[in-house]
């Protein structure tokens, strides 16, 4: 099985004038409940590209997005957005920076007490002084971009999972941000919704000149639209490169992950004592408490 063939309709990413990455992460270290989540991670998110961050479950991919958004503070390391240090930004500055980031949560996270229209209009009403007429135009445009303009009066509880995510996407681009963070966008989607979402992510990235960061463990989809992939495991970057590069790489991690092998650097067996010894030791038929 080779790498998934990229469709020829995928346009070549233009060379950006500014080749400086939008987000640079250096030596990121983060611990939670005593467990090390990140141990010296280095990442670059290049402008105008779709960057995927993948890895086995539990590697803290969502945590990474939270760190980038400033919701969490790392123990050590630096995260720079447009050259500005997120880890040291004050609340006010952080809120300013967040207006330039959009985030798509795993379940959409729409505000349940308002309908689709109000949800998309929310960032506009909160952060701009635009008159309602103008907001209406913008909201309709965003909804049109995700194909849900006709659903604008529905309540979030009336939407399917896929539709909710699309509305959330419309909301995320409401303020025309520079970057969008996608938290596991493909998880639990049927093939059609998946296809829709995949197409949307790529199209929006091109047409709006966005930078997209995708966190996922869905190789096929993520690899098909990403320009660059980082593979995280054990709190470190174990492999990186374009989809093709990774498929050809020597890294055992990459091979196991991309091919879906059950055993490899991520072991099948949870650490346990010697099998034969374990079987022979039990004489009473009951496991004594450790």
């Amino acid at each position: 099985m080779g790498p998934p063939r990229n469709s020829d309709s995928r346009t070549v990413v233009q060379q950006q004038d500014n080749d400086e990455p939008l987000v640079t992460i250096r030596d990121l270290t983060f611990r939670r409940d005593g467990r090390v989540i990140f141990d010296g991670v280095d990442l670059d998110i290049r402008r105008g590209r779709v960057t995927a961050i993948m890895g086995p479950s539990g590697t803290g991919k969502t945590t990474l997005l939270r760190l980038v958004g400033g919701q969490l503070r790392p123990e050590r390391g630096s995260i720079r957005f447009e050259g500005e240090e997120i880890t040291r930004a004050g609340r006010g500055r952080l809120y300013e920076l967040r207006k330039r980031m959009g985030m798509l949560f795993q379940n959409g996270a729409l505000l349940t007490d308002m309908n689709v229209y109000d949800n998309v209009a929310f960032p506009l009403r909160e952060h701009t002084d635009l008159p309602e007429a103008m907001i209406r135009d913008l909201v309709l445009m965003k909804l049109e971009a995700v194909g849900l303009r006709g659903a604008r009066r529905l309540m979030p509880s009336q939407l399917s999972g896929g539709m909710a995510r699309r509305v959330a996407l419309a909301r995320a681009i409401a303020l025309d941000p520079d970057m969008i963070l996608y938290d596991e966008p493909f998880t639990g989607q049927d093939p059609i919704s998946m296809g829709v979402l995949v197409r949307l992510i790529r199209t929006l990235n091109e047409s709006l000149g966005l930078t997209s960061v995708l966190v996922s463990h869905d190789i096929a989809e993520a690899a098909s639209i990403s320009d660059y992939i980082y593979l995280l495991a054990g709190g470190r970057v174990v492999a990186q490169g374009t989809a093709d590069e990774l498929y050809e790489s020597d890294s055992q991690w990459a091979q196991q992950f991309l091919k879906g092998l059950p055993d490899g650097p991520v072991p099948f067996h949870y650490p346990a004592p010697d099998y034969a010894g374990d079987l022979l030791a039990g004489g009473e038929g009951r496991e004594a408490a450790a």
């Binding site: 939270r66 958004g69 919701q71 809120y95 300013e96 967040r98 207006k99 980031m101 959009g102 985030m103 949560f105 795993q106 379940n107 996270a109 729409l110 505000l111 349940t112 929310f122 960032p123 909160e126 952060h127 959330a168 909301r171 963070l181």
Partner: peptide, 17 residues
């Protein structure tokens, strides 16, 4: 419930406290 469905997080990321 808003916390569990990440609505509070979403508000934060939309720069709304």
């Amino acid at each position: 419930l808003m916390k569990a469905t990440e609505q509070l997080s979403a508000l934060e990321m939309m720069a709304v406290d």
